[in-house]
């Protein structure tokens, strides 16, 4: 079995790729997907630590993260559909009508 920090290292790399996607992309849906990638990275670390400490608490956390992510995606995508209906675009830089 590979040591714990292999898994944590993989999780860090995934998390950073998620951050980069969030910072660099302009398509709101891709930004959203990067967010999911970051959740996933955190989940991997949770599961690895759960195995390390032989405790189920980490797995429970992942379970709740998944449930909340499902809720968040449902609302987020609904928002995106609503924004697209009014503005015909989901480029995050064009969603600036709240700017003073």
């Amino acid at each position: 079995m590979a040591p714990l920090y292999y898994y944590v290292g993989l999780s860090v790399i995934m998390f950073v790729i998620g951050i980069l996607g969030m910072l660099l992309r302009r398509n709101a849906i891709v930004i959203f997907m990067s967010l999911e990638l970051m959740f996933n990275a955190a989940n991997l670390a949770f599961i690895a630590f759960s195995r390390h400490y032989q405790s189920l608490n980490g797995q429970m956390f992942v379970f709740f993260v998944m449930a909340v992510a499902a809720a968040e995606v449902a609302v987020g995508l609904a928002l995106m559909v609503a924004i697209f209906r009014t503005r015909r675009s989901i480029d995050v830089d064009q969603i600036s009508s709240m700017k003073g």
């Binding site: 898994y7 996933n40 991997l44 599961i47 690895a48 759960s50 195995r51 797995q59 499902a70």
Partner: peptide
């Protein structure tokens, strides 16, 4: 990877949900 780490339930939930 979850299956490898001994979390089959979470792994299946991951595939089903995500």
């Amino acid at each position: 990877l979850y299956v490898q780490l001994g979390a089959p339930f979470i792994a299946m939930a991951q595939v089903t949900v995500y």
